[in-house]
Design a protein around this nucleic acid. Sequence first.
DNA 1: GCCATAACGAGAGCACTGCTCTTGCTTTTC
DNA 2: GAAAAGCAAGAGCAGTGCTCTCGTTATGGC
Lengths: 227, 227
Amino acid sequence: MSAAGVRARVRAEMTEEIKTVARRHLATDGANLSLRAVARDVGMASSAVYRYFASRDDLLTALIIEAYDAVGDTAEAAADQPAGGDADRFLALAHAVREWALADPHQWALIYGSPVPGYQAPQDTIGPATRVIFKIAAIVEAAYRAGQIAPGPEPTGRYAEELAAVAAQFGPDVPPRLIGAALSAYFQLIGAISAELFGQLNNSVDEDRRGFFEFQMRGAAAFIGLP
Amino acid sequence: MSAAGVRARVRAEMTEEIKTVARRHLATDGANLSLRAVARDVGMASSAVYRYFASRDDLLTALIIEAYDAVGDTAEAAADQPAGGDADRFLALAHAVREWALADPHQWALIYGSPVPGYQAPQDTIGPATRVIFKIAAIVEAAYRAGQIAPGPEPTGRYAEELAAVAAQFGPDVPPRLIGAALSAYFQLIGAISAELFGQLNNSVDEDRRGFFEFQMRGAAAFIGLP
DNA sequence: GCCATAACGAGAGCACTGCTCTTGCTTTTC
DNA sequence: GAAAAGCAAGAGCAGTGCTCTCGTTATGGC
């Protein structure tokens, strides 16, 4: 009918509805959601879903990309908020990511937990996956350019060269040490949240987990040298 | 027949064989191993396995406990090796744990990855689960008793009180700050290994991951204040 | 406007899963 | 030696991912 085509529009809507229902199932069943159950909720035969997603893994991949983008949005928005210093920007980012994870633990587990067995992340995911670390690196780089970070000893060894290659993406003279520190802070962020979500904190810090998280993230910021 | 009973001995052997085969399947299929496939490999009907493990989750729980004990053994052995300083003991522990994880990623994912959906960790697991962090805390405490750790500002807030309660388990006057730092270092250890294993390091540090891991763990040791 | 083509939804079916129940058999216990 | 308890096997149930076939419906070239 129309230029866009009725079928194309219906297809897009259908795809979106399947993903929405799947996301709802993800929140209750985790990564082992049932494609058949999703199909039942959508109101179509399970075989019809395969017109939209080639396999259950393909459906999960779509959800993974959306999750990466959601956490990326969250992180970038929080970091762009006006804040006192660069350390505060990092802390705001960290708290925002943590709260996003607490609001939907299964979605967090989907992207930062153990990979689904037999699942191989396709190329499409690597772009959105890097948004949080890139934002952290951007904060660090900005602080460095502003002369806020004191110089320190540069690492040596082969990994330092690899860090230098990554650092080159940010500019001609970014010290590899800072990229290493940013990467380390990123992993501390993920590790701290995962530890809390996956129950590693039980029976030690149960009440003020937010406070302990901030304690850890302040350590990470100090490691980078953020003011 | 014998005092122990033939049946009891056969039962113990059978239980062990099922676990051994299951561990082998774990290495290839991950946490979604099939109880039926395990039964086939052992050479018995799937229903017979239920005489030994009440459910598939029960089997996994047994494997989880063994995995916690294995990594606990590894960590303790490495830390008890004679070393230059306390930082070296921590680094030895960290490298040993990392190598254990690299040797059997699925076993690592089983205990430090996202929890299997619907699976609730029973009480039996919390004992073995704490061995690594307790060993780290012991290293920190020993260094503190020996006067090797410089005093620093103590944290405030509710989480500090919770840390103090944990610190009391180690002695009357262990600063909560050190317990917090030890806990943070433990999560950095887990986070760094998980990040490497779950593919977060791809396309940034690919060659000298051991070197970058050491860089991170030196940061953690410095955060504690280990000499 | 017609019509071949492609997309689509539904149903049946395959091989698999965790788990239960029943049915015989063997070991232990009294 | 008999009763009781432990054990292995098979059938069966409800569920899974995925494939194939078969009518139906929208699309694009003529």
